[in-house]
């Protein structure tokens, strides 16, 4: 801080114009990030390359990457994230479109109802799902009543159960991301497309959905990263049998007290998210923009 401030002035004096105001505006956030994010993240990264005595080692990464159990854990986490994201896109797209295009005064109310679950703690929502997903719970009864299953179905303590609960928890995030984008696309564009001969569905697909790609991307990224890092829902609804990276990191930190290996898992998770986001962003942009 003390060295950062005089420098711009000095540079400005020499003619290399670094404007003071943006630097000052950025400084608090950057400082906060450095102290509370970058530094701890680096410390975490270092921890993963140390054995219990503090000496440098790659053993922990070898242990993770060469053990099918941990790889399965990572795979299950990514499946959970992707499935949750896809469900929220499927449910969120029509809902957000409707909310954004609705002219009725009910639209605002609907939007509030949609986002309302965000106000309820994830723990409370998960407890609600627990009651519904047990063998004698509502979902199982409903499936039997619809003759979709013969006997009771246990969704509690399974990965599908976790995904269902997570999708409900994270749907508002997707809807809000899409809503903002749909609102910014003028309905006139669809009308213009139709006046040029496009059928309504084609117009919707070619114009609106493609323009909303940015919203789909940011919504997916948010939902995906929140899903794979969420702890309350997987630990309550998924339980030990559907263990994911977040619950494994918790167990390692709190029960086994192996913080070094927990750091390895946290880092692997972070890298996996970054990689997947990059690939996803490429796919979404690469497929759409044709020049």
């Amino acid at each position: 801080m003390t060295t950062a401030l005089p420098m711009p002035a000095e540079n400005a004096g020499r003619g290399g114009k670094i404007p003071l105001v943006p630097v000052l505006l950025l400084a608090p956030a950057v400082l906060l990030y450095l102290v509370f994010f970058v530094w701890p993240q680096l410390a975490l990264l270092m921890l993963g390359f140390q054995d219990r005595g503090g000496a440098f080692t790659l053993d922990l990464y070898v242990r993770f990457l060469s053990d099918s159990y941990y790889l399965k854990l990572l795979w299950r986490t990514l499946v959970m994230g992707v499935a949750t994201t896809m469900i929220t896109i499927l449910l969120g797209l029509p809902l957000a479109y409707l909310l954004a295009r609705a002219r009725s005064r009910w639209a605002t109310l609907l939007l509030i109802i949609t986002t309302f679950p965000l106000l309820v703690s994830a723990v409370v929502r998960s407890f609600g799902w627990m009651v519904l997903l047990y063998r004698n719970g509502f979902v199982s009864d409903l499936l039997q009543w619809l003759s979709l299953t013969d006997g009771p179905t246990q969704l509690m303590y399974t990965l599908p159960g976790t995904i269902i609960a997570l999708a409900q928890v994270l749907l508002p995030i997707m809807v809000l991301s899409l809503y903002a984008v749909f609102r910014s696309i003028p309905p006139d564009l669809e009308l213009a497309a139709m006046s040029l001969g496009a059928r309504p569905t084609t117009a919707l697909w070619l114009v609106t959905i493609k323009l909303a790609k940015g919203g789909i991307f940011s919504g997916s990224l948010l939902v995906f990263s929140m899903a794979i890092s969420s702890f309350a829902t997987p630990s309550l609804v998924g339980g030990p049998r559907a263990a994911v990276m977040a619950t494994s990191i918790y167990d390692l930190t709190v029960t086994v007290l192996d913080w070094n290996f927990a750091a390895v898992q946290a880092t692997v998770l972070l890298v996996a998210v970054l990689l997947l986001s990059l690939i996803y962003g490429r796919l979404l942009n690469g497929g759409g923009i044709k020049t």
Binding site: M130, V131, Y134, R135, N136, G137
Partner: peptide, 11 residues
């Protein structure tokens, strides 16, 4: 905390 639901809805 799982016990009530296990004996209740969990059969």
């Amino acid at each position: 905390s799982d016990i009530p639901t296990l004996f209740g809805q969990g059969d």
